[in-house]
Simulated scan of single mutants.
Amino acid sequence: MDDPVFVIHGVGNRDEEGFARTVAGLRAATGLGLVPVYWGDLGADDRYVDLALPRRTPPDTGLRDEAGAPPDPETAAVLESVLDAPAPPDAEEPPPALADALRAGLENNDDGLRGPGGPDPDDVLAELAELWPEARWLSRVDDPGLLRAAGTALAAAVTEEDDSWDGLRGGGDGRLRALLRRRLRDLDRVAGAAVEAVAGRVNRQLRAHYGPGATRFLGDVLVYQRHRAAVHARIRERIAAVDPELGGGPERPVRVVAHSLGGVIAVDMATAGEPLWTSSLLTFGSQPAYFHLCDPRGGQLSPYAGEESVALPRSLARWTNLWQPLDPLAFAASRVFRLADGTPPADVALPHTIGAGLWTHSAYWRLPEVAEAVREAFAVPAGRG
Rank of each mutant, 00 (worst) to 15 (best):
R384M: 12
G167W: 15
T353R: 09
R228M: 06
R140K: 06
C294S: 12
L261Y: 13
G306N: 06
F217T: 06
G249Y: 10
R234L: 13
L276N: 12
T22R: 01
H352C: 05
T215I: 15
D295Q: 14
V231W: 13
E376Y: 00
V231E: 03
W132N: 07
L131A: 07
E160Q: 11
H9F: 09
V257L: 11
G12H: 02
T22A: 13
A101P: 02
I235V: 09
A317Q: 07
A156T: 04
T22S: 10
A340H: 15
R366M: 03
R136H: 07
Y210D: 11
H232M: 08
L222E: 05
V202Y: 05
A270N: 05
N108S: 03
D347M: 07
N109D: 14
D3S: 13
G40F: 09
A349V: 00
D220T: 06
A379F: 01
D162A: 12
L106C: 06
E17Y: 05
V370W: 01
G112D: 14
S334A: 06
D65E: 08
R181E: 14
L261H: 09
G25A: 09
D46L: 10
R136N: 03
P88K: 02
A191W: 09
R27M: 03
P133D: 10
V348K: 01
H361I: 02
L282T: 00
S260M: 12
D243P: 01
L147G: 01
S362F: 05
G219S: 09
A44E: 04
N321S: 12
L261A: 01
A240D: 03
L281G: 04
